[in-house]
Design a protein around this nucleic acid. Structure first.
Lengths: 140, 140
DNA sequence: AAAGATTATTCAACACTGTAGAAAAAAAGT
DNA sequence: ACTTTTTTTCTACAGTGTTGAATAATCTTT
């Protein structure tokens, strides 16, 4: 039995191994930076139905394989969870960086979102932080 | 000449004073928390065309009257700029709070987004931070 | 206050994004 | 290999946001 990384991940999370899931997972593994639904449709040459892609992404999020990234425009981005994300509770408390030059969004896995002091009466649960600027690939 | 707040703001930013702009601005002034396009359509009883609302919001953002708030789902939220936002460059470097109970988003105008140390090669320009949890209105 | 110039609003149409239910197809378990 | 379970696909729908051109309103000037 040939074990590739995609197969391994799917098996470990208890998911059925299908062409679509392997292909989309492969895309995430070989892509530096986050992907939007549209990117996935483009890069899989529209082999899969739109709905399949949506449902696959939902499943991956639920299983802790990928996580969503907040954006200032209205699009949902997804990126691989680097650290051990168990089903249901993600550990994606890292900062995201959006490059204004190449327009890519990357996870700064080692930069933890700092805690801030909130006004009286506010109880924090989760914090998200996005920094925009110029990334290491685009620096002059 | 009667000067109300909406009129004043529109005049000061050099905008034509119209029913739609006054109404939408009024809604922002009397609303605690951020508004989505859909909220505005609902609360103005669909008196205005959808496109008018979109264009009005765009204009307000450009003129520094309101600013956009990043969300994890795919919707654009808008909120009044409290501090002096000149045309073109906003000063909305404050933290946003999304309440999981009442589902409202509010600007924590006095909580500044902290700066983080980025990896080598990354140059920051703007930072955004959203905290989710329970707000002061919803605390038990 | 009225006329012309400028700016806003509206209408119609379009593209994109995301969701739901049911049928068809594929994968998993025995 | 067969049955059960899961996944993919199809069809359809609702929402969101944008564009261009026509209409309507606002502003400026006299």
């Amino acid at each position: 039995m040939i074990l590739n990384k995609e197969f391994d991940i799917l098996k470990r999370t208890g998911l059925s191994v299908t062409e679509g899931r392997k292909k989309i997972l492969e895309l995430f593994l070989e892509t530096e930076g986050a992907l939007a639904h549209a990117d996935i449709e483009k890069n899989t040459d529209a082999v899969f139905d739109r709905v399949t892609v949506y449902r696959t992404l939902q499943t991956f999020v639920e299983k802790g394989i990928i996580h969503q990234i907040p954006t200032i425009d209205n699009s949902i981005l997804y990126a691989l969870c680097k650290h051990d994300c168990a089903q249901g509770h993600h550990h994606d408390n890292h900062v995201h960086f959006l490059c204004n030059t190449c327009n890519k969004t990357v996870c700064l896995d080692d930069v933890v979102v700092p805690t801030v002091k909130l006004p009286k009466g506010f109880t924090p649960a989760l914090s998200a932080m996005t920094v925009t600027g110029v990334c290491n690939d685009c620096k002059a």
